[in-house]
Design a protein around this nucleic acid. Structure first.
Lengths: 198, 198
DNA sequence: GTCTATAATAAGATAGAC
DNA sequence: GTCTATCTTATTATAGAC
């Protein structure tokens, strides 16, 4: 079968990167074609439902891959506070590589389309759930209650997404580094408190 | 002078509400005209530079008004943890009123345009700075250091923006209520710790 | 599977009458 | 200050050749 999927893969990759820089409605199919180098005829061959389907696949596949990386990175860590700190700094470094021009595709597409496309909304919803679930798993392994673990995992996910918005706006990774520092501090207290109460 | 500004005001108002539901590129000028009921000829009369200027004014004015409301709400509070909790629940209630369809205009426009419009990026940047500064003021009044106050204020701002994205995606205010609860808890510890170290 | 041409629609913006 | 008509350009999507 060789690499008959390379046109499809190039389309997915180019779509995701453009979403990170311009969001959903800011990204045209012609631009995706041009950027990917994929033949235009391939787009509707691989994604018969057009833009909505292409973006849903791009978001879904990249989101799943990212959630898996998060899960693996947090598996078996001995200090959740340090692990969260590292995860946030890692995101900051990734952002820095693009000079704060590429990040936040999930948030952008969510805000632009959650009222008009159930398909996209559900894809992103599953992605965010996977992020939260990965973080929650680590917290459960360290003695937090189910309820508390969800709360903290939601806070970590939300603060990262929000900090990415601030970084894009400020053209600086400072906000991300600030929340990384602060969350490490707060989580240390929460862990100590939780361990004492066991 | 009567109300010669009402066409302008209606345009600003309609623009902001549409940005909250669909973002920047998802909102067309024709739709703004229609929704506002303002005469089409007025748009380029009040905003000669077109869409970019209209959106910048809408974001700027609404952002400034919101930052002022936050500042006043946090002025003279006796418990920062409770104040932040109330602020977050207040946002959740506002979101609930629109069934989670309207919120996140700042984040949406930032993610869509920060690479293509310096004007919009700077307007939003000032807005976020005003939010952070308002929260930071309260924390300074309660004995936190300058550096720590910025970190915590950034975390609060980022987590609220991120939680709004999660709420829009989930069509539920649950994420916002989760982070409200968790931030209250964590802030209580931070305050106790900070007071003890004085 | 891919390419080219094009249809159909909507976008932002402008000109000129009133 | 406002209205209507229109220009230019971009968008998503499709048809039909190869």
């Amino acid at each position: 079968m060789k690499n008959t999927t390379t046109a499809r893969e190039r389309l997915i990759q180019a779509t995701f990167e453009l979403l990170e820089r311009q969001g959903y409605h800011g990204t045209g199919l012609n631009q995706i074609i041009k950027e990917s180098g994929a033949p235009k005829g391939s787009l509707y061959y691989y994604f018969p439902n057009g833009k909505e389907e292409l973006v849903s696949r791009a978001i879904g596949e990249q989101g799943k891959a990212l959630a898996d990386r998060i899960r693996r990175a947090l598996e078996g860590v001995q200090d959740p506070a340090e692990a969260v700190y590292s995860m946030m700094l890692h995101l900051a470094e990734k952002l820095e590589q693009s000079k704060c021009t590429k990040a936040g595709s999930f948030a952008a597409v969510a805000l632009e389309t959650s009222n008009t496309s159930e398909m996209l909304r559900e894809t992103i919803n599953k992605t965010y759930d996977a992020f939260i679930s990965a973080i929650q798993g680590m917290l459960l392994a360290h003695g937090f209650s189910e309820a508390r673990a969800v709360q903290i995992a939601t806070l970590i996910t939300a603060s990262m997404e929000g900090a990415v918005v601030l970084c894009r706006t400020k053209k600086s990774t400072e906000p991300l580094r600030h929340i990384a520092q602060e969350m490490k501090h707060l989580l240390r207290s929460a862990i100590a408190e939780n361990d004492a109460g066991s």
